[in-house]
Design a protein around this nucleic acid. Structure first.
Lengths: 195, 195
DNA sequence: CTTTATATCGAACGCTCGTTATGTTAAAAA
DNA sequence: TTTTTAACATAACGAGCGTTCGATATAAAG
């Protein structure tokens, strides 16, 4: 046994790069093999199938995302402050791992039923983290609207759209962008007299 | 000449249905031919290529969307009211044509450079409509934040995410959902004392 | 009726895809 | 040293893909 996990990790990284830039379906196993300078059959030796590689990519990202979100909501903070921490954490994970995030959002439709169910379970878990926090805000009379799921979906839309336009080399830093987005979510667009 | 535009329209409709449910790449020209009960070569007679069909789908949707948005912002209304009309119009088009919207958002990456440029032009036009309205709001001192493009991107995220979760057969009507989303965008999540 | 243009078809071409069967190297285990 | 096992390679299979070619049917135009 030479260095088995080393090459396996590099394979996941290369697949992430290619899947995110060309799309899962448009990326052939031969593309990945060429980028790794190895043969196709070797990839099958490691992952068994093309979908096995996709699942490895998704499982890695899911773990990172859920760990960070759970950590954020476990902090002992004022309701609004903790919600802001949840938002900024989510934005930071998605913003620093745009490739994994893109695959997670777009290519889960290409999974087999079992893989799709795993992906859905992660999405449900993220949703339940948000619903818990929204309930907490509502308990303190801080929520303007009680349609919690719609609020959550709106937030996911903003966060997940973020990756389509944010470029690290742009004029705003990631921190500035994240603050602006959190304010947008919490306060809305229109200027208010008490803000 | 029998009824040329009739079959051509049906072909665009069938392609829309299949492209949106399975994705552009996962839909073969043979799939579409089978759904239309015609042969593959007949599709090529009409559209010349698979991409030709995709472009026909996108051009149709782009025209509808831009027409409606332009009509909304041409109304003579108070700034906030006109912005709310723009939002609700956009949400209504996307919500009543979820299939076209999905293809428009996801499959423009599969176009050739020329087709991609056409699609980008439409996206730029939509953005400029929003920027104009945001400038108008700002001129009246109504905007909380002056990062206009970020505001616009946040809005697009919410609107385009809408199609991933909204189901007409759900408990809320489209109108109720649209109102809730407009309020979210304009007022934010947190209850304010002057609201 | 003849010409012409459109609508439709059947069959194939060349290519790429995911996958597998079989073999070889090389390093760790015994 | 022998055995075993993981890491790699070569070569192919069968299927599906987008596309094209050549022919036919059909209806409008002359």
């Amino acid at each position: 046994m030479a260095r088995p996990p080393l090459n396996k990790d590099k394979l996941v990284a290369t697949a992430t790069e290619l899947f995110s830039s060309k799309g899962y379906q448009a990326t052939s196993v031969r593309d990945i093999a060429a980028a790794m300078d190895m043969t196709v059959s070797n990839i099958y030796h490691y992952f068994g199938s093309k979908e096995g590689l996709l699942r490895a990519v998704l499982e890695h990202y899911s773990k990172v995302l859920l760990d960070q979100l759970r950590d954020a909501v476990s902090q002992d903070l004022e309701p609004v402050e903790r919600f802001r921490l949840l938002l900024s954490t989510h934005l930071r994970v998605a913003g620093t791992r745009p490739r994994e995030n893109k695959i997670f959002l777009l290519d889960d439709e290409r999974l087999s039923p079992e893989g799709r169910e795993d992906s859905r379970a992660v999405q449900r878990e993220v949703m339940s983290i948000y619903i818990n926090e929204l309930r907490n805000l509502d308990r303190h009379g801080l929520l303007r609207d009680q349609q919690l799921r719609i609020q959550a979906f709106n937030i996911f839309g903003i966060i997940n759209w973020h990756m389509r336009w944010y470029r690290p080399q742009g004029s705003l830093t990631l921190d500035e962008t994240i603050d602006g987005i959190c304010d947008f979510i919490l306060l809305g667009m229109i200027k208010r007299s008490d803000g």
